[in-house]
Amino acid sequence: MLKALTIDPGKCTGCKQCEMACSYVNEGEFNVSKSRIRVFDFHEEARFVPYTCTQCDEAWCQQACPVNAITTNEMGVKIVHDNLCVGCKVCTIACPFGTVNYNASTGKVMKCDLCGGDPACASACPTDAITFQDIEQTGFDKMKVWATKTTAGTEPTGPNAPA
């Protein structure tokens, strides 16, 4: 089954439970500055937008990595291998979505890995603004689902692949 992290900003209340869940799962503590997902607050427009890696088809980060430290798993998730990452940060400038970030305390980069298929952010979201859904069921044209897709089941098709 192809599943995707689906984000509906309209439902987000800005509570940051997702950021805490993410940092807890990945860092073992509550530390939103190390969360792989970030909630943007557009105060004047009364809008909150949770934002994380879309596991994009192009996998810019993976393609840019000089040492093969980012690979794509069978679900289409791009995963950083800490043992291989040298901390060159090229992936952080290569990802045009800005969703790989450098973690100065480890000297390596971090990005969303969909928690191995059980996204903690989605479970923690109290309003279902973040859900982990069957792509078919969402019924959305992939292009129209903002920041929300995985290429589950397909191989990465390179940095310039047509959508």
Binding site: C15, K16, A46, P126
Partner: peptide, 19 residues
């Protein structure tokens, strides 16, 4: 009223955002 807003960590979200 435009929407409700939560404070940090709040799963209730009683805050009002108005225009």
């Amino acid at each position: 009223l435009l929407t409700n807003q939560a404070c940090f960590g709040c799963t209730i979200a009683c805050g009002r955002i108005s225009k």
